[in-house]
Computed example of a mutant assay.
Amino acid sequence: MDRIQITPGLDFSRIVYGMWRLGDDDNTAPEHVQAKISACLDQGITTMDQADIYGGYMAEEILGNALTPDLRNKIEIVTKCDIVAPAGRYDKARVKHYDTSRAHILASVEHSLRLMKTDRIDLLLIHRPDPFMDHHETGAALDEVVAAGKVRAVGVSNFRPWDWTLLQSAMKTPLSTNQIELSLMTHDAFTNGDIAFLQERGIPPMAWSPLGGGTLFASSREDLRKELKKVGEEHGVDAAAVAVAWLLAHPARILPVLGTNNLDRIARIGDAAKLKMDRETWFEIYTHAIGHEVA
């Protein structure tokens, strides 16, 4: 499994295991979570993606209950903050909102450290752009948690280029990534400037929902499914692996975040890294994704 440098001294596995559904599993016992992590490690997948809100603010604790010191030292943990929903520890919130204040960021970091039973977060992301953000306050808070050694790197999620530059303008610490929705079903980032913005700066994007949340395999996309199946059969992998390999092939160095609770599927996540895709194959798949040939 290839690795990508996020910041000096910190690199991630090219494919990331997403834990947003961790709390949805019927079995959340530590031993079962450990089995999922072990299945990832067997493939060289060492980076685990979390967020405070996942599982109604419970997924981080489920992970923490499974982490031994040895296991913690074998993985990198990504987590996110700023979404406040009327659930879990925020059940008294009157309305779902974003909070990028210093107080909320610092409290969120402490919650995440405690719940995951760790002394550091490898990458902390601001989960959603906050239209009420004071970028000076938010930027200083992110610098503060890095300076304190509680967070090794910081980044954002779902930001547009102007959201990125606003926040970065008030920070000493470089933002390390932007985790955006990106798949064959949601591919606008390749043409609307989002990928170009990051690629120009040498910043590896992270891609959430790289299989389109299951819509990729809906009946209405039969032509695309057939193309993925055809390419997969040529390379001995399934259609899902081809869809992920399509992202991996892009020169922007995209890190797909894949989440499933099925141990057999987890064991096959790394298949995407086995397929080396050439330019024409990439465009054949892209043509089916956009529904017409390029101009």
Rank of each mutant, 00 (worst) to 15 (best):
W246L: 01
A85V: 09
I37F: 03
V151P: 08
S169A: 15
L124W: 10
P86L: 00
D143I: 05
R268I: 02
G139E: 14
N178F: 10
L263D: 10
I37C: 01
N192M: 02
D143M: 01
G202R: 07
D188K: 11
E234Q: 09
G9W: 11
V109C: 13
L216M: 12
K274Y: 07
H187M: 00
I269W: 01
Q199E: 15
E234L: 10
R225A: 14
H127E: 07
V78T: 13
L198D: 14
L166H: 11
D188M: 10
Q199R: 14
G44L: 00
I83F: 06
I4F: 11
D24K: 05
H97N: 01
D188T: 15
E284Q: 08
R120P: 08
T287D: 07
R102G: 08
T186E: 15
Y98S: 05
E181W: 00
L216G: 10
E293A: 08
A170K: 05
G9A: 11
R3W: 09
G213K: 00
E222S: 14
I195Y: 12
L67M: 08
P204A: 04
A196E: 15
A59S: 14
E137H: 06
Q168C: 04
S101H: 09
K80P: 05
H97S: 08
A218V: 00
D134H: 11
H32L: 05
Q168V: 07
K276Y: 08
W164C: 06
T118Q: 04
